[in-house]
């Protein structure tokens, strides 16, 4: 199988305080470290496992600026054969614009594929819709939140989709198709710094997004960035570790769960 995996470079924001600039015009991401979107890690791993078992190759595609090359090196270190950067001049906030760009690129460059993988969502914008839009534009089937690939046949796959509350559905999807891969589907392999260094010797191709710009437009626009609405919030317990520990156990006693 030929599998194309879309990978995105995202800022790491878990323990960062994010600042909104210029009265809501932008979010300051300049000083943040970046990495491969966690869901894409699972997508690359799943694709690499499938070709290791059944033959073929994995191509990792990133849409973004020159820095996004970082995730291509990582994907190659994980076992991808090729890395393609679709280099954009500006951030495309609307997934519809990104999906149109990807669709134009795949068609114009006649990239061969049996399946396209994406992560379920990107950690930064959490849109969870790029893969579905792309599938519809290419007029091929789509399955989101794939948590298991049960069988790989010549013309179709049988996959399990994660629903809510511990329920899954098993569906049959014809090839070629688009799958969005859920975290937890596998255990992504460890990638060493040496591995990435070695991977960087493999040539990555750069394609200018402006060559695939037909109908690439945004149908939604950000008018403003805002901090989350403040709720009442928690009563904060302050003090050194001894004090905090004592107060915490006091609350647990009061609530009747600890003697």
């Amino acid at each position: 199988m030929e599998i194309v995996v879309f990978t995105k470079r995202v800022p790491v924001t878990q323990e960062e305080e994010l600042r909104i600039l210029e009265d809501g015009k932008a979010v300051d991401l300049r000083k943040l470290p970046h990495r491969m979107n966690d869901w894409d890690n699972y997508g690359v791993e799943e694709a690499v496992r499938m070709v290791e078992k059944g033959g073929g190759g994995v191509t990792s595609v990133a849409i973004g600026d020159a820095e996004a090359d970082e995730v291509l090196r990582r994907a190659i270190a994980m076992g991808a054969r090729d890395g393609f950067l679709l280099e954009t001049e500006e951030v495309l906030h609307d997934p519809f614009a990104r999906a149109t760009l990807a669709c134009n690129f795949l068609k114009k460059e006649k990239i061969p594929f049996d399946a396209l993988f994406t992560g379920v969502q990107a950690e930064d914008d959490q849109f969870a819709c790029f893969g579905g839009m792309l599938a519809a534009m290419l007029k091929i089937p789509y399955a989101a939140q794939v948590i298991g690939v049960d069988s790989v046949e010549k013309d179709h796959l049988v996959v399990r989709r994660e629903l809510e509350g511990g329920l899954q559905e098993r569906v049959k999807v014809s090839l070629p198709c688009v799958l969005s891969v859920q975290s937890g589907i596998n255990e992504p392999r460890y990638v060493s710094i040496m591995g990435v260094r070695k991977a960087s010797k493999v040539e990555r191709k750069v394609f200018k997004a402006s060559n695939y710009a037909d109908n690439v437009k945004s149908l939604i626009e950000v008018t403003k960035w805002a901090y989350p609405p403040k709720k009442e919030g928690a009563a904060m317990i302050a003090g050194d570790v001894n004090e905090v520990c004592g107060k915490l156990l006091g609350i647990l006693k009061e609530k009747g769960v600890y003697q």
Partner: peptide
């Protein structure tokens, strides 16, 4: 939800509609 987001993405892509 899993299926809501799945259907919305595919339909928006099909109809070239904002999502």
């Amino acid at each position: 939800s899993s299926s809501g987001a799945e259907c919305a993405a595919y339909a928006a892509g099909h109809f070239s509609a904002p999502l």
